[in-house]
Amino acid sequence: MIEVEIKAKINNVDEIKSKINNLNIKKFKEELQEDLYFQSPIVDFAKTDEALRIRKTVENNIANIFITYKGPKIDSESKTREEIEMDIEDSEKASKILKRIGFTPVRCVKKRREYYQYEECILSLDFVEGLEPYMEIETVLEDDSQYKNSQKKIFEIFKKLGIEDGFERDSYLELLENKK
Rank of each mutant, 00 (worst) to 15 (best):
I163D: 00
K93R: 13
K153V: 03
E164Q: 06
L131H: 01
C121L: 13
Y115H: 09
E119L: 06
Q146Y: 08
R100T: 06
E132C: 09
R112F: 13
V109W: 05
E119W: 11
K99E: 06
I137A: 01
A94Y: 04
P105D: 10
P133N: 07
I154N: 01
L123A: 04
R113K: 11
Y116M: 08
G102Y: 13
V106Q: 08
I163C: 02
V106C: 12
E142L: 12
E138A: 08
R113A: 04
Q151F: 15
D143P: 03
L161S: 02
G166K: 03
K111L: 15
V128W: 12
Y116D: 06
S145R: 15
K93N: 15
D126V: 15
F103C: 06
E142K: 13
N149W: 15
Q117N: 13
F155G: 00
Y134L: 12
N149C: 02
K111C: 07
I154A: 02
V109S: 03
K153I: 08
I101R: 08
F158W: 11
G130T: 06
K153T: 05
C108P: 07
I157A: 03
S124Q: 10
G166Y: 01
L98Q: 01
K93C: 15
V109E: 02
A94S: 09
T104Q: 14
K159G: 01
C121S: 10
A94G: 04
K152R: 11
I154K: 00
D165G: 00
R107V: 09
D144C: 13
Q151Y: 11
F158L: 09
K160Y: 06
D144L: 12
Q146E: 14
I163Y: 00
L141V: 03
I163H: 00
L131R: 01
I157K: 06
E119H: 13
T139R: 07
D143R: 03
F155L: 05
V106D: 14
Y115C: 02
C121G: 02
I137V: 07
K160H: 08
E114K: 12
V140R: 03
I97F: 13
K152H: 09
K153L: 10
G162V: 03
Y115M: 02
P105V: 01
Q151P: 01
I157H: 08
E132W: 06
L123Q: 06
Y134M: 11
Y116S: 02
K148C: 04
A94K: 03
G166E: 00
Y134R: 07
K159Q: 02
E114G: 03
K148N: 10
T104H: 15
L125Q: 04
K110I: 04
I101G: 04
R100C: 10
S150N: 15
F158K: 05
K99R: 14
C108N: 13
Y147L: 03
E164T: 13
E136V: 12
Y115G: 04
Y115N: 07
A94D: 04
V128D: 14
R100V: 11
L123F: 12
E136M: 10
F158R: 05
D144F: 08
F155E: 01
E119M: 09
Q146F: 05
T139H: 10
L131C: 01
F127Y: 09
